[in-house]
Design a protein around this nucleic acid. Sequence first.
RNA 1: GCAGGGGUGGGUGAGCGGCUAAAACCGACAGACUGUAAAUCUGUUGCCUGAAAUGGCUACGCAGGUUCGAAUCCUGCCCCCUGCACCA
Length: 436
Amino acid sequence: MSTAPEVRIPTDEELQRITRRAVIEIIPEQEFIQALKSGRQLRLKMGFDPSRPDMHIGHAIGLRKLRQLQDLGHQVVVIVGDWTGRIGDPSGQSQTRPMLTEEEVEANAETYLRQVYRIVDREKTEVLVQSSWFDRFDLEDVIRLSACFTVAQMLRREDFAQRYESHRPIGLHEFMYPLLQAYDSVEVRADVEFGGSDQRFNLLLGRELQEMMGQRPQSVFIMPLLVGTDGVQKMSKSLNNYIAVEDPPGEMYGKVMSIPDTLILNYFTLATDVPDAELQEISEALEKRSVNPMELKMRLAREIVAQFYDAAAAQEAEEGFRRTFSKRQAPEDLVTEYRVSFSDSAKKFNRPVLDVGGVRMVESLYLPKVLVEAGMVPSVSEAKRLIKQGAIDIDGDVHTSEIFALIDGLLFRVGKRRFLRIVDADKQADSSLRSE
RNA sequence: GCAGGGGUGGGUGAGCGGCUAAAACCGACAGACUGUAAAUCUGUUGCCUGAAAUGGCUACGCAGGUUCGAAUCCUGCCCCCUGCACCA
């Protein structure tokens, strides 16, 4: 009943792209290349942690790789790591995480997969939930699995070794994380597993375990971690230096523009499909300073936005970006709208709703609170500081007062790239009533 | 189990009865300069009070106590580190 899957053998050029670009190491490389050339359909495994469903363009590096292979006809297998997610990947700092409920896992998995499918083909993707095999594990299975490895083997993992050396604690349960991940490979009969360089140990453990269990050991595909927009640390949500896959185009474009120049080539290499020949040109241009790096960065930003949206969106984002800093206008997708009822405010502060030349307005509202309520700033104190520092302007004029006249459509610029528009809720209500 | 050292703001880390919302450094944010880059300079960096305060509230592992007053002293507890002991 299963028809032989259509698998295409990559051309040398494609092979080059798959095995060289955005790759740190393939173990063992020759075995992997042979497998690709064999015409056999490979099962490509990549796992994710459902406790953190937000995906950024660093994750996209791996997914892009999967997509390349998927286009050749190979089978992508995505694992929802609901059990490993509960343990938390041993990173030294991370304490045991609270157990996620089934609903949380489901919800997170759903949002995550939605993002995954922006890159890989949903039709050709198999999704498996870890608990579907670990739920039936009993103590004997756990012990049997643990017995496959020794403490010495575990200590090959660098962060364990470091902590052991410096006498910092290592929870026994932390050993379970790589073990479970390794067992996943057995369960799904993976031919290749993909992961970032921080996953190296876990990936290799999967390979070993498969062999012990009589399976053909998986190849391991290790990819670089993308550096975040700060240019120093790896991209991560908790460090707030990330570009989310679901960022709106303008936001995405702007974030790319904010990366340091030193990262331009790196981003082109890892996050775009710009051909190698052009990478070479870009590299030379940067070195010789023959082009304003900003121009290259704009190209980069276009490439990235187009990848997650389309060329038109990229173009639009670029125009928005230009307007933002040359003409100081706000690009629409960076504007937060704050809806206030003018009549309620008027009542609250005992001010009349005025009509000045057809513009409805209320005399005064307290700006710090509005900023907090609109979610632009975490506290009133913070908002006051911003005002004091001249970080807020209306139409290019710095707004130094904590009080402002409530006008429908009033647009504040907060800092460099945040915008707040005041919208008259009454008016909206009126018009929506009228239109019905 | 015994002995010694330690737990301070996003991080590192000073303070060791009032001058401490807590040095310094890093980070972060804002401003100037720019290309929303880098570098540099300046400012801000617990929260609240609809100007502000020598105003209020919260904060130095947790819970009590001494004191006019405690991050600082005392008691108990928890956790971490180092050494010794124990080790089927």
